[in-house]
Simulated scan of single mutants.
Amino acid sequence: MKKHLLFLVFISIITIAQGQSTLTNGQVYDFDIGDTLQIRYNTPWNSQVPYKYETRVVLSKTITTNSDSIIYTIKSTFYTPPSTFSTSVITSTITNLSAIAPLYNNTSPCMGMLLDTMYFNSCGILVYKKYPGPSVSCTSQPFQQNTYLMKGLGGPYFDYFAVAGPPPENYYKIELIYYSKNIGTCGSLITTTKDVEKNDEFYIYPNPSTGRFTIKNASVIDQLIKLFDLTGKLLLEQTTKGEITIDATYLKAGIYNLQIKNLGAVLNKKLIITH
């Protein structure tokens, strides 16, 4: 059954699976023929270039005679909204299946100061995560911050991936937003501009309200929420993702503009407050 849930969202209690403290290559890159993943590549914060979406479908799987390597043939399709597609067939070889899966492809002064954890995300997938400790200041280039591997879903995925130049203009996200495997389906597959708009859409309820209302959106990335009166005066500003309840009962009855902004779009909806 399809789960319309968000990826990389913490559950309230972090659960360690059977005492595991990391994941092996064989666990992370365990795919079957027909498995489908979609990855979203976010553009820099100061860019108007749209997201890119890569859909990967496993076409074949070959296990070597010593059972220590797997060769996958994968169909990779990149979609850049509104209508640009490019497709190729690639070969990926996973070796040392029993070895610990690496998270980093570069050297960084922050690597020795990172913490790690394992938990089940909201789709029920075991995730291994590395993240900076509270006193870490990662300013040298390049570095990855909040990096993830997922059991049976590959990686690494990044909350922010700095490539060059001063932050935050250079920050990217590499996110898994959809999968379909024998264990089930989770997320929303993006193949059209309507899918993009639907994924960015948000809902307000109740509306009208007495000033206490809930905002729910389907995006997996951070959203900047702003509330304006009809003169354009900013009354409230907050960052969130997923679902949040806001108490604005202190505001006068009237019509307000609620704006939600992420890296790809700015959406506006009318909010009505009554007393």
Rank of each mutant, 00 (worst) to 15 (best):
S135K: 09
A101W: 00
T147S: 14
L234G: 06
T210Q: 08
N268C: 04
K269M: 08
M150I: 08
I174M: 12
S12T: 14
Y148A: 02
K216D: 07
Y104M: 14
F213C: 12
S67E: 13
I74S: 01
M111T: 14
Y41C: 05
Q223G: 00
N66W: 03
D200M: 05
V89F: 07
Q48N: 13
E243M: 11
G254V: 08
P167F: 05
N105M: 06
Q145N: 14
I246E: 09
D222G: 13
G242A: 05
D116H: 15
T239I: 07
D116C: 06
I90M: 03
L5G: 04
V163T: 11
T249Q: 15
L126V: 03
P132W: 00
L176A: 02
T43L: 02
T22D: 06
P81H: 11
T231G: 10
L236I: 03
L8T: 04
D229V: 13
K269F: 01
T64P: 03
Q38G: 07
L6W: 02
S92T: 02
L251K: 00
M111V: 12
Q27P: 01
S209P: 15
Q259D: 08
K216N: 08
S76G: 06
L103F: 11
L23Y: 00
L5M: 06
L258R: 04
T239M: 04
G211W: 03
F120V: 02
K2L: 11
S188W: 09
Y51G: 03
G232E: 11
S140A: 15
Q18H: 05
G184L: 02
Y250T: 13
L230I: 15
L59H: 05
G26S: 02
G187W: 00
A265Y: 00
